[in-house]
């Protein structure tokens, strides 16, 4: 490959997600005039909020080379508990607090399994995924629950003229971004992800850092659950299903490595979440067969990950150590 092509191709590959994002927006924009309306874009942001928030928590876990498969179940159990409480007459703030509490408890349980008992994160959170789902199904007796309108009102509430869900998501992302880039805790997470043993030898309290990320992930899952409930207004037995995968996909699309130590929430995970949501939103507008959604989303995720691995391979190839400069030809 000659240097000129190299110079042109590399920036393109470096921002694979951004390029895909642009392509998806332009594509849907051309296919449907309704896509680029202000109303639809606002709607898109509202829909993406929940995924972004759950994805932020997931990014923290992925950065430490862990994974949290239980987030979808956390959303379900928390929603089930909140539904039961409100149907029994509890006011909205109590229900919201209960949701957050469930998130923190499951997060702490994951932390206990991973840090204290040394269970692999994948296995531990796969376990809590099933426990959570099973517990939620038992609690609801697999029946759907309609929530009072106060939940739906949350979804349409405005803060300074802006819809509440994206505002809340923006606050979460901003806090997470500052935490990751500007606090000792954030920087230490990258070290733990790069080498757990190395971080320990550098004098870090690795256990405490890991506990923090799993609890944070549980907390974000609960918040994401609230945002989803505010849009749906009901708890169905499938609520939260597969959300762990959307969250992981958002993080990975945003450039966070599954092997830890690399990535970030902004623009990374945020962009990933919005990209995934754009695809779904665009397909809805085009009246596509709903059974096609997962296939198209999967294809786009594949493409992004493929581009990213091509980039690493090319970079490794181009970056190969040179011993002396090539003589001018």
């Amino acid at each position: 490959m000659n240097p000129t092509r190299q110079r042109l191709l590399l920036p393109l590959l470096n921002h694979a997600t951004l390029v895909l994002f642009a392509a998806v927006l332009v594509g849907f924009g051309l296919l449907s005039p309704k896509f680029f309306t202000a109303a639809n874009l606002a709607n898109l942001l509202v829909q993406a909020s929940s995924t972004a928030v759950v994805g932020v928590g997931m990014t923290f876990v992925l950065l430490t080379a862990g994974v949290d498969l239980s987030v979808g179940s956390v959303m379900f159990v928390a929603a089930a508990v909140a539904g039961k409480l409100t149907l029994a007459g509890a006011p909205l703030p109590v229900a919201l607090l209960a949701i957050v509490a469930v998130g923190l408890v499951v997060g702490a349980l994951n932390a206990l399994l991973v840090v204290r008992l040394g269970v692999l994160a994948f296995i531990a959170t796969l376990g809590t995924l099933y426990i959570g789902r099973g517990f939620g199904l038992w609690l609801t007796q697999t029946r759907a629950m309609n929530l009072p309108d106060s939940f739906l009102a949350l979804g349409t509430a405005k803060v300074a003229g802006l819809p509440l869900p994206p505002v809340l998501a923006a606050v979460v992302v901003a806090l997470a971004h500052v935490t990751l880039t500007r606090t000792p805790f954030g920087r230490q997470l990258y070290a733990v992800g790069a080498s757990r043993e190395g971080a320990k030898k550098a004098g870090l309290n690795v256990g405490r850092l890991l506990v923090a990320v799993y609890v944070l992930s549980g907390f974000c899952a609960a918040l994401g659950g609230i945002l989803s409930l505010a849009q749906l207004g009901a708890v169905s037995p499938t609520f939260g299903t597969n959300r762990e995968f959307t969250a992981i996909a958002a993080a990975v699309l945003g450039g966070t490595s599954l092997f830890g130590g690399r990535g970030g929430v902004f623009p990374g995970t945020v962009l990933g979440a919005i990209l995934i949501q754009s695809v779904e939103n665009g397909l809805v507008i085009l009246n596509a067969d709903p059974y096609l959604y997962p296939l198209v989303t999967a294809a786009i995720i594949f493409l992004a990950v493929l581009l990213d691995s091509t980039r690493s391979r090319l970079q490794a190839h181009w970056g190969r150590r040179r011993i002396f400069d090539e003589p001018a030809e």
């Binding site: 000792p184 990258y190 070290a191 790069a194 971080a199 550098a202």
Partner: peptide
């Protein structure tokens, strides 16, 4: 025992960053 993705300063002070409040 170093972290290639972090910068020199971060590697040096990883375990005791100078901070103001929560921030570095």
């Amino acid at each position: 025992n170093l972290f290639p993705d972090l910068d020199l300063a971060e590697n040096l002070f990883l375990a005791d960053f100078p901070t103001r409040g929560p921030l570095i």
